[in-house]
Write a protein that binds this DNA or RNA. Structure first.
Lengths: 141, 141
DNA sequence: TATTGTTATACTCTATAACTATA
DNA sequence: TATAGTTATAGAGTATAACAATA
């Protein structure tokens, strides 16, 4: 998804601000992934491996098919960023583990994704609190 | 589905709220596209055709390669949602035009994308103004 | 020479269906 | 029977490179 937050006359409406903000976020996220030669999908898996876990758990959380996870994990594994271990409790399952190399790559991704830090830096403590609260409310939290 | 997704825990920090909000927005956007049998990329092109325009202009705005646009437009054209016209002023260029059917499909997409309307409905007038303003500031506007 | 757009190619994401091994 | 994961397959997005036609 992509957009131009063009300086439209007075596109000062909330829907437009939402669109532009999400677009900026998504672009920054993808750029950070690309900086580590990763796709967004690969990052989505990599960052969810702070603890070892099974594929079906990942598929559920990411809202995609299990066969999808198989392929993404296979690519991450071929690059040495994760590895598969047999589950000690379930003979069918495999646990995905992020390797030390994967840890370093994730850390570099985090460092490259400056967007959230920029947002934080541009707002006062009170504004940050306000924004956090408004976003929760906007989502129906 | 896209693997761009969300998570389960609920930390009250701004970075986390940003991530969750963008994830919710992206998922809703994709669902609206899917409801019209469109990909997100196809929607991105379709909604930018309120006026006829060339491919390179679209490629620049969307931040992708021109060959990419060629393919997306070809798929939209094969479904009758857009058509290509020769440019009257530049023999190399083609102008992309959204057809009447494309107009209707875009309108149905807009109707299906309820996210922004939901956000609006959940906030008071003052909160909407606050959020709009905070998002602009957060982006460095 | 530079630009507009296309074609060919290759890789990735994604879902569906069929399959295995295990529960 | 149901679940965890894989394989095969196919459609779509994406970029790069090479190309044609025009500016």
């Amino acid at each position: 998804m992509t957009v131009t937050s063009a300086a439209a006359t007075h596109a000062d409406t909330l829907p437009r601000a939402l669109y532009d903000f999400v677009d900026a976020y998504d672009r920054a996220y993808e750029a950070a992934a690309t900086s580590q030669q990763l796709s967004v999908a690969q990052v989505c898996v990599l960052i969810r491996l702070d603890e070892k876990r099974g594929m079906s758990s990942l598929a559920t959380e990411l809202g995609c098919d299990a066969s999808n996870i198989t392929q993404i994990v296979a690519r991450l594994e071929s690059r040495g960023l994760v590895r598969r271990e047999p589950s000690p409790t379930d003979g069918r399952a495999r646990l995905i583990v992020r390797t030390a190399d994967g840890d370093r790559t994730k850390a570099r991704f985090d460092a490259a994704f400056e967007f959230a830090r920029d947002v934080t830096a541009r707002l006062s403590a009170q504004e940050r609190e306000q924004l956090t609260s408004l976003l929760h409310k906007a989502m129906g939290a």
